[in-house]
Design a protein around this nucleic acid. Structure first.
Lengths: 343, 343
DNA sequence: CGGAAAAACTATAACGTTATAGGATCGAAC
DNA sequence: GTTCGATCCTATAACGTTATAGTTTTTCCG
């Protein structure tokens, strides 16, 4: 809600000194006023707070840390062995792995559904609490990308945007996946039902575009699952699919944007007695290999999230250190998984 | 390999000043020597490096950051919506969620199989790069726990140890899980085959103890899968199970320590034509809900990792800030999942 | 109205590092 | 034997904050 003033490039960010100058108080007074010390007058505190807000003051964490010894950092030390990884943990691990041996630490800052996606980005840029940012879930016209670009703040994204800005990114070619998915369906299939990622995300757009065009080219009917997306909770997807597959005209193929959606969809269709691989097919993308264990008839395309992570880590380091990146942008070409060779 | 000297409590950690005093050089010279500047003599550099090593010198990151503006931090900003969470990402998210609104940041530091588990812990303690540490995968006599205790460094663990040290932890009661698992098997089952977590981890020990004792109490035969564990790659588990279930005496029940193991085991047994729920049963623990979607006959116990994460975050904050914790230790009591109620 | 106490504010130093400009020492060249 | 240029080293200031001790101003009481 609080519209923090846009810190203009080249202008120093305000310190206690700035506020002291602006209010005519001593630095120490400002410091104490901001932490609500008992020996500062109410009116002074009010004035200081107001000025701090107006100037967009943010504490310098390095200085506090140096002075007080307090880091305000919690370290989570994780074992790498214990876990079948999913999309998120694979991304985290692969970035951390690429950062090994460098001086960089990895801070993970999730933002929550009730939160403005700009908030963490703004926080990091304003407090300079990181040298660079890696973002995922890009949107077509992504304000976060605009913001970081405007502030010349180094960043890299998992996923592209629409903005014709030349920043480091790595993306899975979801449009090609959409195309490939349709093309991988047995020739007798006539009606695709797609559980796609949200349309306000780039990867959703791409995937829908690829699939719908390929369907048109093959003369197939194309239908988008509504209102669920591949990110919706599995139970909801299952309910929607179950209902849809009891009505005519019944689709005979499903394209799923995630493991989650594929599993839920299989359960939903099978509820009506249909057999996967006989009555219908499912093509899905996944980041961890287990759909083929779930139903061996599943047609699967693997996304190599680990590759994305290490690419992004390297590209971002290049950007931070002002090096010309070897390759600043990467696109993963989707390929059908062949289980027989165990790839 | 490098035996870093144990920083004794109460003794200040060495700075450039310390090294300068020890070598008789100026602070600036020591600084430049350590970064291999061209205008420092080779012999001096050698001496400085040697002294730094001997004293266990580690750069103060806050000071560097304040001075240079370089944070050496990479921020990974994640969306919380997009992903079906697994054990790791759930832990990360829940800790981050508990830290929301506090001044704490979360640094994730995975260590890799080729690495000494002590390394990240030692690094954090020596460089004071965090106020506290959260660890998982505790071992019976865990040197990391001993180390942090010896150094009075605040920490909390996901899992207990054997060491009769009174530190904050949260644990899933794996012994009770083992017991419950055996008890949940249909009465006609006579021979349990257990794919347990590694025995050198506490949770493996607990789980094995609970299950083997309960099996003995029920007069069941108890067998441990060898050489795989519940953390082994699914393909290997599947191979081992497939082979084992073609030999007599054939077990008629499986207890799996992870989702991963349960899925692989099901596939392995089914390979021999056996039917889950008819010829054999599987009881498994899992952190994400999907085993029941995989095979509805699966008997499942949910572990609430999110609860662990927020518990640990709170307990660690209490420890850091010297507060007496409301509850410093927590144990999750395992319960059978009831899918019909959708719990 | 003098004086003491309370309230409100300030000056200073310090945390550990590094960039910068400058100083000492030495050998070589004239 | 001065001068020059390397080579090697050092003093100093600064980064932004906070703890401490201290100073000024106000209030209030007798």
């Amino acid at each position: 809600m609080t519209e923090s003033p846009l810190p203009v490039i080249g202008v120093e960010r305000p310190t206690l000194k700035t506020i002291a100058a602006a209010t005519g108080l001593a630095i120490a007074t400002v410091s104490r006023a901001l932490k609500d010390a008992p020996d500062i007058g109410e009116e002074t505190k009010r004035r200081v707070r107001e000025t701090a807000l107006r100037l967009g003051y943010r504490q310098n964490r390095a200085a506090v840390r140096l002075r007080t010894g307090k880091t305000n950092v919690i370290a989570l030390v994780l074992s790498t062995e214990a876990d079948v990884m999913n999309h998120t943990s694979k991304l985290i691990y692969s970035i951390a792995a690429a950062l090994r041996g460098t001086a960089y630490h990895l801070v993970v800052m999730p933002f929550f559904p009730d939160q403005d996606p700009m908030e963490p980005v703004r926080y990091i840029v304003e407090t300079e609490s990181a040298d660079g940012i890696i973002l995922n879930q890009t949107k077509p016209d992504d304000p976060r990308i605009r913001y970081m670009t405007d502030h010349h703040f180094p960043f890299a994204t998992h996923g592209r945007s629409d903005m014709a800005l030349d920043h480091p990114y790595f993306d899975f070619d979801n449009e090609a996946f959409g195309t490939l998915a349709v093309q991988s369906l047995p020739s007798q299939r006539r009606h695709v039902y797609m559980i796609a990622p949200p349309r306000n995300h780039m990867y959703g757009r791409h995937m829908i575009m690829g699939a719908s065009q390929a369907a048109a080219a093959r003369g197939m009917r194309f239908e988008l699952a509504e209102p669920v997306t591949s990110d919706t909770l599995a139970d909801e997807i299952e309910a929607v699919v179950t209902k849809r597959f009891q009505q005519d005209p019944m689709p005979d193929a499903i394209i799923a944007g995630s493991t989650n959606a594929a599993m839920a969809a299989a359960a939903g269709v099978e509820f009506g007695g249909k057999k996967l691989g006989i009555d219908f097919d499912i093509v899905s993308k996944e980041a961890i290999r287990f759909l083929h264990r779930f139903r061996k008839e599943m047609i699967v395309v693997q996304e190599d999230v680990g590759r994305a992570g290490s690419f992004l880590a390297r590209a971002l380091q290049d950007a931070i250190e002002g090096r010309a990146p070897k390759e600043g942008q990467g696109l993963e070409v989707p390929r059908l998984s062949d289980f027989r060779t165990g790839i």
